[in-house]
Amino acid sequence: MIRAGRFLLALVALLATLAPAPLPAHELQPGFLELREVGPGRFEVLWKQPLVGGARMQIAPIFPESCRQVGEVRTERVEIAWLSTTRIECAQGLAEKTIAIDGLDAYSTDVLVRVQHADGAVETLVAKPVQPAVTLRGANDAQRGLWAYLYLGIEHILLGLDHLLFVLGLLLIVRDRWTLVKTVTAFTVAHSITLAVATFGVAQVASAPLNAAIALSILFLGPEIVRTWRGQTSFTIRHPWVVAFVFGLLHGFGFASGLAALGLPQGEIPLALLLFNVGVEIGQLAFVLLVILLERSFRILQIHWPQIVERLPGYAVGTLGAFWTIQRVAILLRAVV
């Protein structure tokens, strides 16, 4: 037991050394570029630059050469981003033109590009670090880009290591299939509620305490996993779906950081929210299915892992939960003091 404790301590210290900067689990604040056509070839521009460690992300849109700025640039700081507005005039319009985001390749986030044409048709595209430019098709082919929200949802869960680790922790304490269904459903319902609440702007949670609370939810599962190893029981082990629901509410606010930060027009929120949530569910179910299938495969193939390997996922949940809790509480305290 003492050896295991030392091992965990060493692992936490190692992780702290390797990752002095906050892990990117909740750093996925996408940028947002909105272009609204107010006249032939004339666009109102809204440019939202997220904050990274309190500083403005060093990214900027590059418009086609046929475009020129015709209005003043007004910039203001909002809670989690810098907002700039201006007007541009594009002699040949924006159909089939490319907009690039300079500097995006230096970050691990995306920029959602939304273009509203004069006839009301909307194009929504995602510029990524590996592909920091998008090509517009024009009003005739609009609405195609709504799938961008689905992509953002899948990306948010697949890169949200803390969410996946929480789900893994739940899977490790669940004993039977029916409890598994109840637990996964409870988590889904709960995070869908708060995702909607946050996206519609009904309630907001500051990111620093939220991230610390999410880390705490993962750490909370660590001792519960150990109890299952020892054959003990607890309220969480008997009713994991309750814990999944309660903490799922927190994680929903975390998911919302990928969507609420964009400041989408009210009319587009319901569909964007639906697709984003479906994307999150696709990623989450794929992960759950993979874990279940792997567990079943190891059982069929009669693979007997050494105890340390068998318990590694549990150790990972507890250790990373502890690490993130310390790290994020430190960030929270720094912000407060």
């Binding site: 993979l290 792997l294 495969s297 069929i300 193939l301």
Partner: peptide, 13 residues
């Protein structure tokens, strides 16, 4: 690893 584990185990059954 994942693909091999899942497919091969299913085939053994």
């Amino acid at each position: 690893f994942c693909l091999l584990a899942i497919v091969s185990s299913q085939v053994t059954t």
